[in-house]
Amino acid sequence: MNFDDLIQGFPDLTTTGLAQGSIYALVALGYTLVYGVLRLINFAHSEVFMYGTFAALWTWGLMGYDSNSARPDLGTALLLIVVSLVVASLFSGGVAMVVEAVAYRPLRKRNAPPLVFLISAIGASFVLAELMGAFTERRQQGIPGLLPTEPLFSAGGWTVYPLQLMTFVVALAVMFGLDWFVSKTRFGRGIRAVAQDADTAALMGVNKGRVIGLVFLLGGLLAGVAAVFYSMKQGNTRFNVGFLIGLKAFSAAVLGGIGNLRGALVGGLLLGLVEAYGAALFGSNWTNVIAFVVLLVLLMFRPTGLLGESLGRARA
C-alpha cells in the first residue's frame, strides 16, 4: 500500500485514468448496444477493435508515416488522426457487420438459444484474430508517434498531455453523439423499440434485421475510434491486443449496467480511474486484479450494475 504515491499523483492519475477509461467506455458501448438489443455477449467485438488498430496503422503507413518517421507538425498530425479515425471506424464497422451477417444472422433465423450465439461468437473471434495473426506474421507492429509529447499544460503537479485531452474530448463527443442518435432519431427509436420487445417492434413495422445490422455498425464505428486512440497511446499493436481490452470493456459495460448506454460511459470511466488509483496504491502488476475485485464486489451489492439494464427504457 503506497498512499504517498496516490496522494501526490492524484491529479495525474485522474487524467490517466479518464483517458484510459474513455477508451474502455467506447469499446464498452459496442458490447452494451449489442447486448441491449440481442441479449448477447458479442465476444468477437474485441477483434473488431483489434482490426481498427491495424486499419489506423495501415492508413498512416499509406500516408507515409510509420514507426520510424519523425513526428509531424501539429496540423499534419491532426489531419492524420482525422483520416485514420474515419478509416478505422469504417473498417471496424464493416468487420462488425460481416461478423453479424456470417456468425449471428443465420442463428437468429433459427431462433437459437443464447449459448449457441456465444460459441458462434467465440468461433468468429478465433477466425478474425488468427487471420490477422497469419497476415501480420504474429509480429508486434509499431505505431508512429503523431501528437507532441510535451505536456499541454502543467501546474502544481498536474500535467495534461495532448493525447489524453484529445482522447477524452473525442470520446465524450462521440458518446454524446451516440446518446443523441439513440434517443432522438428515427433509427434510434427503432433500436430502442427492438431492445424493448423485438417481436412487437417488428409488428409495428420496425425492420428488425436492419436495426440489428445498424447496432453492430454503430458498435464497430465506436470501436474504431477507440482503436485509433489506443494505438497512439500504446505505441504498438498486435493481432491479440483485442482480448484484454475486450475483457476490460466488457467488465466496464457490466459495471455500469450492461445494455445501458450511459452505464457504459460511467462504467468505462470508473474502471479507468479505479485502475489508475489501484496501480498507484498496489503497484501496476495488480491493475487487472483490482479492476476485477471492484467489479465482483459491486455486482454483489448491485447485481445489475451501477445504473441497471435499460437500453429499451432510455426515453428521449
Binding site: 442463428l107 468461433g123 478465433f126 477466425v127 488468427e130 487471420l131 497469419a134
Partner: peptide, 16 residues
C-alpha cells in the same frame, strides 16, 4: 498457421 481459423470457422458452421 491457420489451424485456429479453420477451427473457429468450424465452430460457427456447427452452431448454425
Amino acid at each position: 498457421s491457420l489451424r485456429f481459423v479453420i477451427f473457429g470457422a468450424l465452430l460457427i458452421v456447427v452452431m448454425i
